[in-house]
Amino acid sequence: MRKPRDPGSYLLPVVVLLGFLAIWFFICYSNLFPAYVLPSPGAVWKSFREEVVSGRLADDIVASLWRVAVGFVAAAVLGIPAGLWLGQHMHARQAFVPMLNFFRFLSPLAWIPFAILWFHIGDKPAFFLIFMATFFPLVLATMAAVATIPSIYFRVARDYHYKGIELLTKVTFPAILPQVITALRVSYGISWVVIVAAEMVGCQDGLGYGIWEARNGLRLDSAVCYMIVIGLLGMGIDRLLAQLTKLPNVRWGYER
């Protein structure tokens, strides 16, 4: 069934990447800017090797991944059921949606002062900020998905006597699963953006803290190295989440 991959799909991005690197090289070696303002690719590569050899980069990656995982999983475990419940109860929706929307539009970074005062320094403020960043979009997306389930599914379910928990797990949940997967990808993206800011203020390690420390030491080569790692990890994990969309029982949600 699988189509052979179009060679353009991996050749073209490589061409763009090489072009980008060439421009970067050209700007650096034409001395348009001093080296401490714009680190050269060579300097970034050197700093990357240093960070890997010292083991700091690996430690920072593990710290960031752990914080995102905890905050994100907590938001999903609480947010998806909350969205399911709200989607099925109109009065609850009327009551809670304005408040949920309010918090969704509040930048998670606004919680930084509270995060530090309440949870001090370490993993906890980061967990909290990731949770605050992803919980509200997940609730609202799940709720909207439930509200748009075609009523025909519930009529069929009624004809065949699906009730209670069985109705929820065998009809409602599978009917929204494609949209829930999309919502998870979007909110994971948010959490990966937020972790960098969270670690700049509330942590002593992590990828965001790495950038912060590089700034303090005027080591932009190290900052760029961390930026590249953050971008690549974010893309990689999104690719993993995208695998969920290939499950046979959710394909329908993306193909019509």
């Binding site: 025909i152 599914y153 009529r155 069929v156 599978p174 009917a175 959710v250 329908w252």
Partner: peptide
Amino acid sequence: TVYQQDGLFPW
């Protein structure tokens, strides 16, 4: 009941 269309569960 047989409905006009899309009464099958797509999942």
